[in-house]
């Protein structure tokens, strides 16, 4: 056509598949889509009540409701606001149904209510401080260094099934994942730090970055608790928790312990790798520290927490400022 036609056409006949790091990078975005969330489903249910039946369109819940609903102790208020909104619709419907003998809208409204009732538990679970964390904060927080304990993982993480799946959260540079894999485990690495996950997955492809061990694992770039929540019950032989346990506040720590218990097989092992609080505070920039929901707790406190949430505590190891508290899910 024009003189430009030979300039620039790079349409490729066949596009190579995504590299693992790229696939995970895009998956991070896909996981932000609201489908299946309480908000998405509720708004959809309300939208079905609109228009075609001649009433004013559903204008949506108050714009700040969902943000308010994410704070602690506001679950009841959120549900209350939703129920009030539904009640308004139902009151109008009742009149209309009586007048017209049409039950379409009423059925849709009841669908919405039933859905809401079924999801209240999920709703409450979603109202967690973790959801309010400052984005990418994990990248600015010190992570415990296993040091000599790294190669002794087979000793401090006693797996009843040596070939079972171990969740390594947060896997960092993948060194522990590699050690676990060498011991025969299938390893699922999880890390919320996109740059870390990218580096681990793409070590060979990215020039100029430090060499990292070749890790035969799946790596998911997400918060550990979210991956545990989405995991199948009794599916893991072992779980290692690092980083997330030091940043989470106390309810977050309890929630992590509960989420691990749900996903471990009977007799499965959990290791909580935590930093000495003083060392953590020394290494954590002051500004970052103030943004964190929580700080490390003593290994004795972890032992008590795990015991009270149904684990058999096996012991604590210490190397420098790092403590590893190991426990087993009771059979």
């Amino acid at each position: 056509m024009s003189e430009s036609s030979d300039v620039e056409s790079q349409v490729t006949a066949g596009v190579p598949p995504l590299r693992p790091a790229e696939r995970e990078l895009l998956a991070v975005f896909d996981r932000l889509a609201p489908q299946g969330s309480v908000r998405w489903a509720f708004e959809d249910a309300m939208a079905r009540l609109d228009r075609e039946h001649g009433t004013p369109p559903w204008a949506g819940l108050p714009p700040d409701l969902w943000e308010r609903g994410r704070g602690a102790q506001v679950g009841q208020r959120l549900v209350g606001d939703v129920v009030v909104a539904l009640a308004d619709v139902l009151a109008g419907d009742a009149r209309r149904v009586a007048e017209e003998g049409v039950d379409v809208r009423l059925r849709a409204a009841w669908d919405a209510l039933r859905y809401l009732a079924a999801r209240v538990e999920t709703l409450e679970a979603r109202i967690d401080p973790g959801g309010q964390a400052v984005p990418d904060l994990a990248s600015m927080v010190p992570h415990p260094d296993l040091g000599p304990l790294l190669e002794e993982v087979g000793d401090w993480l006693p797996l009843s099934d040596p070939h079972g799946t171990v969740l390594d959260g947060e896997c960092g540079d993948g060194a522990l994942s590699a050690a676990l894999a060498r011991g025969g485990s299938a390893v699922h690495g999880v890390d919320p730090r996109p740059r870390t996950a990218w580096t681990v997955l793409d070590a060979r492809a990215v020039s100029g970055l430090p060499t990292v061990p070749t890790v035969p694992t799946t790596v998911t770039c997400a918060e550990v608790v979210d991956v545990l929540d989405a995991g199948a019950p009794a599916s893991l032989a072992g779980v290692v928790l690092r980083g997330c346990v030091d940043r989470a506040d106390l309810p977050g720590k309890v929630r992590l312990a509960g989420a691990v218990a749900r996903t471990l097989v009977a007799g499965g092992a959990v290791a909580v790798v935590t930093m000495d609080r003083r060392s953590f505070e020394d290494r954590c920039p002051a500004g970052v520290r103030e943004l964190l929901p929580g700080t490390p707790i003593a290994p004795e406190a972890w032992s008590l927490l795990l015991e009270r949430t149904g684990y058999e505590v096996l012991g604590t190891r210490t190397a420098g400022s790092t403590h590893v508290v190991t426990a087993r899910r009771q059979r």
């Binding site: 300039v7 056409s9 790079q10």
Partner: peptide, 23 residues
């Protein structure tokens, strides 16, 4: 990216790609 009417509108006067993998 070469989708819909983009190639037609661009008329060869730009870089048309069929691959939008991030890297």
């Amino acid at each position: 990216f070469d989708a819909g009417a983009v190639a037609e509108s661009l008329g060869g006067a730009g870089v048309l790609v069929g691959d939008k993998r991030p890297s």
